[in-house]
Design a protein around this nucleic acid. Structure first.
Lengths: 342, 342
DNA sequence: GGCATTCTTGGTAGCGCTACCATTCGAACC
DNA sequence: GGTTCGAATGGTAGCGCTACCAAGAATGCC
């Protein structure tokens, strides 16, 4: 089972094989691959031919070791199945697919401790950039990010005091806008239904509260939350709880679209008229919101674009021109639909 | 005038720093970390103390280079946002979070060419294992997998002739079971609605067809498909097309739950009674299927478990004991719900 | 024409770690 | 008591690549 030391890599061609075949020095091959302009037209052709013929693929580990810099983007998200983060991740992947950069994706499970652990781990690879979801890192995580020695982009939210760069939007404004829309539409006993209640959910709740207080409508009994992970069935249950607690409820701002969908289904089931008896607003605007019956008003957020923008900013910073704007607010859009068209 | 190259890595402690501090050889530190039993109790304690004090984290790149083996699982899926693959990926992440293995995730966008490119790229890292979705690799991809020199697990489906190992279930049987259920429930003009039509969808269609033909009910006009990426709104549109083409339709087997949801919403919108006028069966059993009104019959597939099992098999193979069963069929379950309860 | 400058190319010396072998030492064995 | 053996530890030599410097050729300048 133990292979001889030479060719430990299982016979894969190395840069020296290519160099020999092309009749040049190894370093020239390296340059031809990384900085083509620094190698003469002719040699470059010979080298590329040799690369092709041997099927040479550079070893990223050796490369990283020699250059003290891995061509890796570290990406940290709190969930892999939540469509919201999946979209951001997709934007990141799509933006990097033609670049030499690989992606190291970590799942923090909404845990600060897990985030610290992963940051520690990622740091050991000397990544080219780090993209992390959220702006509420623990002090330890923040320090790790500050000392990472690479561009850092915090995504999903904007806020003061970025570690380095930020792309996102204001969840507080989003919550406020959603709530104000319900108020304008004539709803009065407007509930807030939220699950998981991570920091972004908290800020959406704060936006809801601000709008309600401003209109003189706030009542703590209108708020129904749980730390449990969000789901459609949970939305249904929380809505039933909310109704039991406050039978005069005539509208709900849901922390996210899954909850909103659960509310809608429960309304169907209980023959509650939407939007007449109850108005519903979701958050994120998943694709199905506009197809639902009735279609559901939601706050559209630009998740995919956040991913793309984060990569663009990181790449710019790597290339040396750090963007003027260190905090980019991509905003959101209120999508008015049938669920609030009273 | 020779400047020391030392500390290119930005002052991060190395294994020699730890060795010096603990008063041992570098190799002993390496062993203490990787094979603790081979180092005496006492030295181990000293070394771990030094590691702790210096905040030493091994450089995975150097490790990979020296050992000709990276502690990386390569994972290839066709989509990052499709909940089905997200669940599999989550299972993989959860199973590996306590192991030293990192994950390299690739998105093939349902493209064979992209899969080849990524396999090539992943191979250059000498991964510890490869997990790929599907069993329909191109000949080139198959060769790359066979020559990867590491355990390979094909997931999502079972079939003959695995590259190495497989975990999944039979999509053909799934399609057949779903269709037979509709037939048994008394539906006759049962349509098939499918989007994207990747190989797994094709086999679900084949299962549908087999069941329909066996019952003497098959009619090609009952089949409505498109290569377009699946979505809820697409489900709605396809259902309208199907109805226009075949107004006597009384049931649909949907390629996946997104489509089924689109169909359900369109039925609401057009006041078509479900399950009386139209019966609906989905595929995958997303969480919301049981909350929908009416709740939607679906084929539950064990995506998270597939991810976990794939990792378990790969880890076993890495440890040297290749499982007896190279092909594991995790099956599926028909979840009967209101949408077919005529 | 002499000298500085740029453009190409190559040699050397590691990057941080581990495979392989060598060495030491105490215990087991005959 | 000498030999054998295994356990514990260390030294050496790379893994495949690139940073750094050097050197030669080509070009520009006065």
């Amino acid at each position: 089972m133990i292979k001889p030391r030479s060719r430990r890599g299982g016979g894969r061609p190395t840069i020296s094989d290519v160099a020999r075949k092309a009749g040049v020095g190894a370093i020239t091959v390296s340059r031809a691959l990384r900085e083509p302009v620094r190698v003469s037209e002719e040699l470059r052709r010979q080298i590329l031919a040799a690369v092709e013929e041997l099927g040479y693929v550079p070893d990223p580990n050796a490369r990283a070791l020699a250059s003290a810099r891995a061509e890796v983007f570290g990406v940290l998200v709190p969930s892999l199945t939540n469509n919201v983060f999946a979209e951001v991740v997709r934007g990141i992947y799509d933006s990097l697919s033609d670049s030499p950069f690989r992606i190291q994706l970590g799942n923090t499970h909404y845990s600060g401790l897990e985030e610290e652990r992963l940051l520690q781990l990622f740091g050991s690879q000397r990544p080219a950039a780090l993209i992390v979801a959220g702006i509420d890192q623990t002090p330890t995580s923040r320090k790790l990010l500050e000392n990472a020695g690479c561009p850092v982009v915090q995504v999903m939210e904007t806020g003061p005091d970025p570690v380095d760069m930020m792309v996102g939007f204001s969840h507080l404004d989003g919550g406020r806008t959603a709530t104000e829309h319900l108020i304008e539409a004539g709803y009065r006993r407007i509930g807030f239904i939220g699950a998981r209640m991570d920091p972004r959910s908290q800020r959406r709740l704060a936006g809801y509260r601000a709008a309600m207080e401003r209109a003189g409508l706030f009542d703590p009994r209108l708020v129904t939350t749980t730390p449990v992970l969000s789901s459609v069935s949970l939305g249904r249950e929380l809505f039933r709880d909310a109704l039991a607690k406050m039978p005069t409820l005539d509208g709900v701002f849901c922390n996210n679209d899954d909850i909103a969908l659960g509310v809608l289904f429960e309304c169907h089931r209980a023959s509650i008229d939407v939007p007449k008896t109850i108005g519903i607003v979701g958050f994120n605007d998943l694709e199905m919101m506009q197809v639902a019956f009735p279609s559901i008003t939601s706050i559209r957020t630009h998740r995919y674009e956040i991913g793309r923008r984060a990569v663009a900013m990181a790449l710019a910073a790597i290339a040396g021109d750090r963007p003027q704007e260190r905090v980019v607010d991509l905003g959101f859009e209120l999508k008015r639909r049938e669920s609030t068209a009273r």
